[in-house]
């Protein structure tokens, strides 16, 4: 029975998400008017992790074989053949690095108080911060994180948005994340902190242990120890801790690979999730709000979603300037 809980949350379902994202890139490159900006964005995605690069290479290589299918009909030669060769674009070393190197920041702490740095992502953006101690912080869409990092102190403040922390544990220099009136302390772990609305906070632990403390409020405010699979939702002074299965947590972390994983979500929920990543907002009419859908979607591709609503679910789509209305 313990089989489910043994699963490493970080890896479970990850390959599928990476493949979904890689195939979306490749399908776009094969069928879109592919420009320099597209190529730069793809190269940035490929250089994020070897897993991205490998998934893309694999799909691309398999896809390359289908160009030979043209030979089955092959009435056309020369031009058509040359055109197809361009599909097998050779990789170039990615020029675009989305990683911000923070190595060496600690040295500055000899001179007075360590400096605070502020990192932000735009709507639809994503960044990975690499700290000198090997820790990594991945920022999701529309996020503001303040960070103090020195030889003595490691503390972050999540002003807004969502971040995934993969922290190299150091008991002498615990890593803390402050969110409003709460503080999350790393006890050797990987965890997600989401600060969506101003007064709600969600902490999900995918490995190890963290401690969640209220820094203000009633005397003797409770301290919660959270372990793998625990999800704490804090609203005001109330904290509710539930346990989610590994796969659910992995789905919530789909954004780390640029995808939104929907499993039996209502259209209204799906729209709310998409809207975090896009400036053009989805609006679902009440008549369609409760229709359930599932699937893996690129977070920035609202068009794919609306077209599927149209073509697969048979819904109507009305496009306006800043929003897209979906109704029955």
């Amino acid at each position: 029975m313990s089989g489910e809980t043994e699963v490493d949350v970080l890896t479970f379902g990850r390959a599928e998400q990476v493949e979904a994202a890689a195939s979306d890139w490749l399908a776009r490159r094969v069928t879109d008017n592919w420009g320099e900006a597209d190529e730069a964005a793809l190269q940035a995605w490929l250089s994020e992790t070897p897993a991205h690069r490998i998934a893309f290479l694999r799909l691309e290589a398999a896809w390359g074989y289908t160009s030979r299918l043209g030979a089955l009909r092959a009435p056309r030669r020369g031009l058509a053949r040359d055109a197809k060769m361009s599909g097998r674009v050779v990789f170039r070393i990615a020029a675009a690095m989305v990683v911000l190197a923070l190595v060496g920041l600690g040295a500055g702490s000899y001179f007075g108080a360590p400096r605070e740095k502020i990192y932000t992502t735009a709507v639809g953006g994503r960044e990975t911060l690499k700290l000198a101690d090997g820790s990594q912080i991945e920022l999701n869409t529309d996020t503001v994180l303040r960070l103090v990092y020195s030889r003595k102190v490691r503390k972050a403040t999540l002003e807004r948005g969502e971040a995934y922390f993969h922290i190299a544990h150091d008991a002498a220099r615990p890593f803390t994340v402050r969110v409003g009136q709460h503080r999350v302390t790393d006890l050797g772990t990987k965890f997600l902190v989401r600060h969506a609305a101003s007064d709600t906070l969600e902490v999900a632990v995918t490995e190890g242990l963290v401690r969640l403390d209220a820094t203000e409020g009633p005397a003797g405010a409770r301290s919660n120890l959270l372990s793998v699979g625990d999800v704490a939702v804090v609203t005001g002074h109330n904290t509710v801790v539930t346990r989610k299965p590994a796969q659910k947590l992995a789905e919530e972390l789909g954004w780390r690979h640029g995808v939104l994983v929907l499993d039996n979500a209502t259209l209204a929920d799906a729209a709310a999730q998409f809207n975090r990543y896009n400036t053009r907002k989805l609006v679902i009419a009440p008549s369609a709000a409760r229709i359930a859908i599932g699937g893996t979607f690129p977070t920035n591709n609202i068009e794919a979603f609306t077209e599927l609503a149209q073509d697969v679910l048979g819904l109507k789509v009305k496009e306006r300037k800043d929003e897209i209305l979906i109704l029955r």
Binding site: E19, A20, S23, D24, L26, A27, R28, V30, T31, D32, R58, L59, A61, A62, W63, Y65, T66, N301, E303, A304, T306, E307, L308, Q310, D311, V312
Partner: peptide
């Protein structure tokens, strides 16, 4: 069908092809 749906089916086909090949 819409162009995005074309792309969606294409992406799905690409994954299946790689798995089979």
């Amino acid at each position: 069908i819409g162009e995005e749906t074309v792309k969606w089916h294409m992406a799905k086909g690409m994954r299946a092809l790689a798995d089979m090949i």
